[in-house]
Simulated scan of single mutants.
Amino acid sequence: MCYRIALLFTSLMTAIALMPTYADEVDVVDDKPLPKLTLLTENFAPFNYVEDEQIKGFTVDVVEHILAATGSSQNRTDMQVLPWSSAYQQGLLRPDTMLFTLIHTEHRDPLFRWIGPLVPTRVVVIAKRNMEFKAESVEELAGLVIGTVSQDVGEQLLIEEGFAVRNIVSEDSPKKIVEMLKRNHLNAIAYDDISAFWYLDHIGEDLDKYEIVYILQESHQYMGLSRSTPKWVEDKLQEALNQLKYSERYREMISQYPVIEHALYPTN
């Protein structure tokens, strides 16, 4: 019942987010400074996460750089780390809001303004190797109890493809679901592959004990702006990102995160 209420609320919020706004009609970039943005993120290592009371990660580095490149004085001290469900809802509705890191899907496409792409990603179902199980479709996952992060893309894709909601255990952080998988409280988890294996590694698990049993979607990671944010803000930030991606500084940023470097340059 609670899940159905949450789903109805999300549908209502989505409808509001898609209402036409004056910002959608403006397509002119000028030299005026960026508005102060609400910068929302979550614990989604190694892209954005809190460690030793400091916010860090690859996307954090990128966001901070492109803000500075546009003349903004905002930096990582202005970023708020929230549970994903809360950050996502605010990102849908709140003007002048940036949400990151955001995986692109067909369903999400009209809901945000997209700045990217950043890193190629796969949204996957991961289980312990000793299950000796592989799936060719979501239907073949039936009967499994799968952990997700609330309103994360893994959860959204499972539901969109008809997976039974009663078999989804929805939590507020990736660390919780990987811990539950470790303790055999779940059969599998649905999450970004890079991040899932990062968390498994950081709780001391042998990664060879786990495997991808199904790929829900291959996509890219982006930064998202709420639809009511003016189009010129999107254009200005995208231009700053494009310039960064063609610079040596970008490669230096990537080199700080070996798992991301491997995703971008798999032959290295």
Rank of each mutant, 00 (worst) to 15 (best):
I159H: 03
V165N: 11
I177L: 10
F163V: 06
M180E: 07
V178I: 11
E179H: 14
E160M: 13
Q151C: 10
S173F: 09
P174M: 11
L181T: 00
G154T: 00
V165T: 07
G154Y: 00
D152S: 14
I177Y: 02
L157T: 02
K182C: 11
R166E: 10
I168H: 01
F163H: 07
E171D: 12
G154K: 00
D152A: 07
L157C: 05
F163T: 09
Q151K: 06
R183Q: 15
F163Y: 11
Q156D: 02
R183T: 07
Q156M: 11
V169P: 14
N184H: 08
E155K: 01
E179D: 11
N184L: 10
L157A: 04
S170T: 10
I159P: 03
L158Q: 02
D172R: 08
R183F: 15
G162P: 04
G154C: 04
F163A: 05
L158F: 02
V178P: 09
A164G: 10
M180I: 02
I168S: 01
L157G: 01
N184P: 10
E171F: 12
I177S: 01
V178D: 02
N184Q: 12
V178Q: 03
I168P: 02
I168R: 00
V178F: 04
V153N: 07
V153C: 05
L157H: 01
Q151D: 13
A164V: 15
E161M: 13
E160K: 04
V169K: 08
K176F: 11
P174L: 12
E171S: 08
V165Y: 10
I159K: 05
R166V: 08
N167A: 14
I177C: 07
I159D: 00
M180V: 01
D172I: 15
R166K: 14
S170R: 10
L158N: 02
L158S: 03
K175N: 11
I168V: 13
Q151R: 09
V165D: 06
S170I: 02
D152M: 05
I168M: 00
I168L: 06
M180K: 04
N167D: 14
S170A: 12
K182W: 07
A164Q: 09
Q151W: 13
Q151G: 11
N167K: 09
V165R: 09
A164R: 13
R183H: 13
F163G: 02
G162D: 02
I159L: 08
R166P: 01
L181F: 02
K182E: 11
R183P: 12
E179K: 09
